[in-house]
Design a protein around this nucleic acid. Sequence first.
DNA 1: CCGCACCTGGACCCATGGGTGGAACCCAAG
DNA 2: CTTGGGTTCCACCCATGGGTCCAGGTGCGG
Lengths: 221, 221
Amino acid sequence: MSEQGEKVQQLRVVVADDQAAVREPLAAVLGLAEDIEVVAAAADGTEVLAAVSGAAVDVVLMDLRMPVMDGIEATRRLSEEHPEVAVVVLTTFADDESILAALGAGARGYLTKNAGRQDIVRALRAAAAGQSVLDREVQDRLLATVRTKPQASGTSLPQDITPREREVLGLIGQGLPNRAIAEQLFISEATVKTHINNLFAKAGIRDRADAVRRAIAAGLA
Amino acid sequence: MSEQGEKVQQLRVVVADDQAAVREPLAAVLGLAEDIEVVAAAADGTEVLAAVSGAAVDVVLMDLRMPVMDGIEATRRLSEEHPEVAVVVLTTFADDESILAALGAGARGYLTKNAGRQDIVRALRAAAAGQSVLDREVQDRLLATVRTKPQASGTSLPQDITPREREVLGLIGQGLPNRAIAEQLFISEATVKTHINNLFAKAGIRDRADAVRRAIAAGLA
DNA sequence: CCGCACCTGGACCCATGGGTGGAACCCAAG
DNA sequence: CTTGGGTTCCACCCATGGGTCCAGGTGCGG
């Protein structure tokens, strides 16, 4: 696929971040690498598109949170209009939503701002070569998302909880307050509280928020 | 995180493949890279484990189809017993099952045998640095698997929530009470409540239980 | 320079939640 | 038949949560 290149070809890079305090030093430090040339710096998605249209670009290092046009939208446009340009996302946020949106939009890399200079440079090179580089935590989240489905049966809960208690837990997991749970089960709110107290004691649940998490983990919600 | 190392530290690599006709040339050509030292070659999973126990190893380049103990099982054992050793899979097969099994077992990279020498070297370096490198096709498959099962992504968070609010939401999602959140963020409980109120208003969250569910759905917990 | 968004903090009020103790009923198993 | 678990309910207490209103500080962009 790629040749053994001791003669390193220049990587033409665009750095995109709305914060100049991040963008400028980043561009400067990346330029220090002998095989990297920062051909443009952009403060929002529209500037990225303009830069790519105006000059030959291999890779865009893209922040997600930018005004006017954010990194997701810019990535989507790029992968449609300039599929030969690779996008590597560099952002502080590593939540599932952002990761999936970015990769779904066509990003070939996803780094958090914990990444060091070497990590970034490596990701840029890999992306230009058609590979995809992810931070460890990002990879873990992506993988976790894949394997969240197959857990319909009880995961962790103790088995000495009664059917009624399990039922109540499920409703808690759906975010219902005690009154609504009572109405749904045709019992009084006092009874709901009793079930909840027994349930918490048996399963070692601390409070309602904890209960919601356990309910979701157990597939009851 | 990683320093700018012009003095490249040696990467101690183990090459694992059952076919000598693949293993030997691969080990030889990788050894040509000045920052890579092939410390062992293994023909199956047991040999890999033996090699890792016997010498300091940074990365294992692992084939999946091997006799006695295959690459998946070897990867799983490695990530349990020697989590500091990274595993990069190099195989001819790029089916969903193999990819998910390998990454689920703890592999930090997945390359097909289309990959060139430069691609492999780059992946080894990245894996040793804690990053994860995937071939483009592998990445695409993984992503396709993910987005066949996105359930209620229509209920995603509004984009106008601030970083701080997002942070607070994440802690709520972990089941922490306001006081604990305040301590963790070095702010007062009053401030936490303010963030929560703004957050609830913006995202249409009703109460804490609802917040936990949204946080989990958004991957913040 | 002024406005705006964000983060910070305080005061107050009231609804809800969580904990305790007790009590009645049913039903199945010992 | 008697015991015990499950379910149903009540009364009481108080910590926490959720809502409202307000206000100072900061940093950025028009």
